[in-house]
Design a protein around this nucleic acid. Structure first.
Lengths: 350, 350
DNA sequence: CGCATGCCTGAGAGCGCTCTCAACACCGAG
DNA sequence: CTCGGTGTTGAGAGCGCTCTCAGGCATGCG
């Protein structure tokens, strides 16, 4: 008998405490415990202390499911990562955004639910999931142009925050780094260093960040009165190899180049390697500026000039925007643009 | 009146359907709908069809909170990423594991809840969360030696799957790639190519994968009767720069080296760059083999020989193991070791 | 023809929580 | 001394679901 009893006691101890149990331990009603647990407004100091003590002693954690059932909130946030982003895992971007996001989400005591969609069937599943009331809001990164998901979610009243430029016609929050300005600064810097034949390697052009960086590049050239040369715009896809190959081809064609602005550090390294192979010295013959200011920039030889973007902060700000627009029942979307900063290093010395 | 009504109807339609609603639409009881939704055992074909139709028409999705409240399952799996792993985001490893994991989890219609722990306070929060009944099981990757979390969770009856070698004294599932054998194959290959002065750059030594790869290296040398030389073991931390610096130092010290086995491709690239800087030709003077067979290996010049590990499959298998041990109430842990494969390329031609 | 047997089905309890509402005590003002 | 606040507390309903249990019905056997 005794062992069985001991076992039961152990099991009972393992069984998580309920509001009810805490209430009876503290000698109050469930309602009072609930009030204390949720901020403690309108509870007398003595009772509050008693309840807090009981909560601590019993290691009480509210049952999320029960709470969610009545509040109709889930306290969880979906993070959608489209397929192509997984190919970007080689890029530190994703990890840093997630790191920032998860910091804020955890602080707010919410759950971060990760959803990757690799196939069309996944997309179907993901949108069903997101509109099925399983999350209070959705974060989207690495979005491609024309992805219907933001509109789909917004139409169904789901709170959304995107890593994108402000959307005039969609009630969603957006956060973005100032890609245009970053690219502009980079290319201006190259031009100020006396370069005139400035090539660029773009990212995947169906992504807004790639377009914006290209726009900044073009603007800087036009400001400086340098004529447009389509041949110097190499269309990459964020991939290092692809960037190297494009640059290879450009150089093999005999084109003159004295500077390169790459839309990511990874691609800058690809370009660098192609330049080396063709005997060009960096920065003497060709100057290079990348984008991201990732650790890769420091480990390159020479060290890579790069446009620094506050990626963790991007993640944090996305999460904050979303949480705020969920909390404010009005769902007013907010848009934020974070500044970028050019970091000059050896690869673009003039 | 009419607009208000129309609005109400629209709002009602937006309100998710409940079991109750489906039941009355199909002319059956809640219990029957529930049975159909959960597999449909013991329901007559006609009723089942009627219910299925109603479910489809009303776009019914079970309310997870309500279900969870009574079944005491959460249908969600925690994925814990310790701080140091975020520094590994530059490494494609993490993304590929997550990709594999999320594939399986999604298929099983479970939620993947991402938890990162960057500070000690986070750790506290994470373990409270995990033992608070918020998840049915926990996946751990990028674990450091002596991390108390696996034991802590196991003691509290939480199902756990680790990326680690089998744990004899802990009831947790494990999945690992055969690091020892991979390293062994790599170093044997170098020795067979006539190399005798084989250096290695290790990963962070408080991680099992780093230890195992070092063990494989040592075993290969000892098999070949090559005397142990502590000076050739460079202790890295998965970081490219650090690897480059160590190799720099080794070469500057005048040590003879004719081959390098690096515990990751990233570090192999670091070593490669140091060798270049010291005028060593690869593979003529020094052969190199990396580990991971990441895309980086292909983009190096010369292309990097590397030990391929099935990373996505590692993720998938971890998820499968965990789900299985949750489903089987016995919680029998299972351990899997996945084979690695040496891929020979230009960097180790002899 | 009576009865045990097996299969479907529905009624109903209850999971742990929040939140409304009423009850109550206590206060100062009239 | 009564009355209308004001502030604190508890009772109780109910969120949407699962699951046990018992009832109803058809079937097969004695």
């Amino acid at each position: 008998m005794v062992p069985a009893l001991a076992l039961m006691a152990a099991d009972a101890a393992r069984e998580p405490a309920t509001l009810e149990a805490v209430a009876s331990a503290a000698g109050v009603s469930r309602a009072t415990v609930s009030r204390v647990v949720n901020g403690g407004e309108g509870v007398s100091p003595e009772l509050r202390r008693a309840v807090e003590k009981a909560v601590r002693q019993m290691g009480y954690t509210p049952n999320r499911a029960a709470r969610s059932l009545v509040t109709r909130r889930t306290d969880s946030i979906g993070l959608v990562i489209p397929e192509s982003t997984t190919t970007l895992f080689g890029d530190p971007f994703f990890g840093r955004v997630v790191s920032g996001i998860s910091e804020v989400i955890a602080e707010a005591d919410q759950q971060l639910v990760l959803l990757t969609s690799q196939t069309a069937r996944d997309e179907e599943r993901v949108s069903r999931y997101l509109t099925g009331g399983h999350v209070d809001g959705v974060l989207l990164v690495g979005l491609h142009r024309g992805d219907p998901l933001p509109r789909f979610l917004a139409d169904r009243g789901v709170a959304v925050a995107l890593n994108a430029q402000p959307q005039r016609d969609l009630p969603v929050s957006t956060v973005d780094v100032d890609n245009v300005h970053g690219a502009l600064a980079a290319v201006r810097h190259l031009i100020e260093g006396g370069r005139r034949r400035v090539a660029t390697v773009t990212g995947l052009m169906d992504m807004a960040s790639a377009q914006d960086r290209l726009a900044g590049y073009r603007q800087a050239l036009s400001e400086a009165g340098i004529p447009y040369d389509a041949g110097l715009e190499l269309h990459g896809d964020w991939d290092q190899d692809r960037a190297r190959a494009s640059m290879d081809e450009l150089l093999a064609s005999g084109a003159e180049v004295d500077a390169v602005f790459a839309a990511s550090d990874l691609m800058a390294l690809g370009a660098l390697s192609a330049l080396r192979r063709h005997g060009r010295r960096v920065p003497d013959d060709v100057a290079i500026v990348g984008f991201d200011d990732s650790p890769l920039a420091l480990s390159a030889d020479p060290q890579l000039s790069s446009v620094r973007q506050p990626i963790e902060e991007l993640g944090r700000e996305m999460a904050r925007s979303l949480l705020r627009s969920i909390a404010a029942k009005d769902r007013v979307p907010r848009s934020t643009v974070l500044a970028t900063e050019l970091v000059v290093r050896g690869s673009s010395a003039s």
